[in-house]
Structures are given as structure tokens and as C-alpha cells.
Amino acid sequence: MSRRVYTERDIHMALDGELPADELPGYEAWLDANPDMKARSVRFEADRARLRQTFADALTEPVPERLERLVIGEPVGSSAGGGTWRMAAAAVLLLSLGVSAGYLAGIAGRHGEPAEEVLAGEAIAAHTIFAAEKRHAVEVGGDDREHLLGWLSNRIGLTLVAPDLADDGFELVGGRLLPAGNNRAALLLYEDAEGNRISVFVMAEKAGTAKGTYKLASDGPSAIYWLDEGYACAIVGNLPQERLSKVAGSAYRQLLAGAGKV
């Protein structure tokens, strides 16, 4: 039997099955002679059991269909055919997560910030300025919806629809055209019965793919944003996160469908 000196590192090796079989008797004897180390070993093993227990469900629960479909369904290397699962993904995503994005071409050169940060920042700034305006918040009112959407679609180079957010209690107030770097963005403003306002900020943007939640100040409005396939949008508001996420998901689905991106 080997006469080597054992250390705390061996506790981990033994636990992980990395200790050679011929060293195990020596290790066991060392544990018996060192109650502290033995207690530690028992504890690490218990923590590992808790860890496994905690995440055990993930192995048995059904895998979301969107993931399976992605593997089976889509042609390899195709990014153009990705609309279906993107749609499904849009319904559930909430938190910051991103594929490495490029830089917003329309707003390029601004301290080299990632595109989605610039997008979300612009959207929050626009919301802060215009949502506060009682009488001059919009250039064209929601009562002239057809003109509003035709005009904005032409200016930003995307087919823009005004999402119907009545289920979430929001009605279209109207919209306006905004500069966004070298590009143009459309802002649609919505209001609920309590006077809460949210903005839908849309622009054409080629840089990258990203999605997430962005906030400039802890008590300020949040932007939930998507950057995908040349379509960039952010939904901004000062609502409880859960409500904003729900409205944003609904708005995004309708925007994509309206733009023929599905």
C-alpha cells in the first residue's frame, strides 16, 4: 500500500472517483485518523447529493419542442429559414442573453458599444422624453392609424404594424419618427387606463442577433429588446417587470408577423 501523504484535495478526488484504487485504503485510514477531514468529506458528498437532487427534474421533464425542432427540422447552416423557432423563442425569452452581436450600423462609432445596448439606450431615451409629453407626445395620432403606419413604414424601411395590446390594457396613442444615429426609428406610444405609457421602438438594423432586458437606472424604465434578421425593436416602460415582459412578448410577436418575418 502506498505511504503517501493525503490532503484535502484527495477528498475531492475520492468523491469524484479520481483516486486510484490502490490508494483508497490509505485514504480511508487517513480519514479515520482525521475526524475534521472526515466531516468535510461527508459534507461535500451531501452537498453534491443536494445539487443533483435540485436539478434532477431537468433530466426527466419533456424537452421543449422548439429545441427538438431546431435539431430535426431546420436545414443546416440556414439562417433565413429560422423564423418559426425564433417566433417560439420570442414568446418565452425574458432575460439578457445574446449571441455575440455586431455593432449597430445605423448608430455606429459610438464608443464601440454593442448594438443592443445602443438600441436599448436610444429607446429608453426616446421613451423618457416623449412619454412624458402630455400634449405633444406623438406627431400622428392613433386615430389616423393607416396614415401613421404607412408613413413610418416608408421612413424606416420596414413594414410596421401597430400591435394590438388591448388584452394587456394598452391603447395606441400615436407615433413619431426619430433620428437614430445615421438611421431612422419609429416610436409608437401606448397608454393604459391608469395613464401608464409604454413605447414600441422599431428600426432596421443589420448588426447581429441579441435579446434581453436593459435598464439605465434602478428606478427608471426598462427596455426589452430584440435584434434579429435586420429587425431591431425595443419595448420600453416603467412597469413591473412581469407585466412589461408579457406586453413586450405580445408586441414583438405581432411586429414580426406584420413584418413578414415569421
Binding site: 435540485t54 436539478f55 424537452v63 429545441l67 423563442a89 418565452v92 432575460l95
Partner: peptide, 25 residues
Amino acid sequence: ELPRLRRYSRALLRDPDAADDLVQD
């Protein structure tokens, strides 16, 4: 491998939706 990828991702990120998005990426 999907179930294992999901488990690992969830343990890394905590939020189940963010975890599935990572698996998707």
C-alpha cells in the same frame, strides 16, 4: 444530449428560460 444540456444550463444560469435560450444558441 438535450436533457443533459438543459440541466447543465439551468444550473449555470438559474432562470429556466434563459437556460433554454443558451441551449438553443
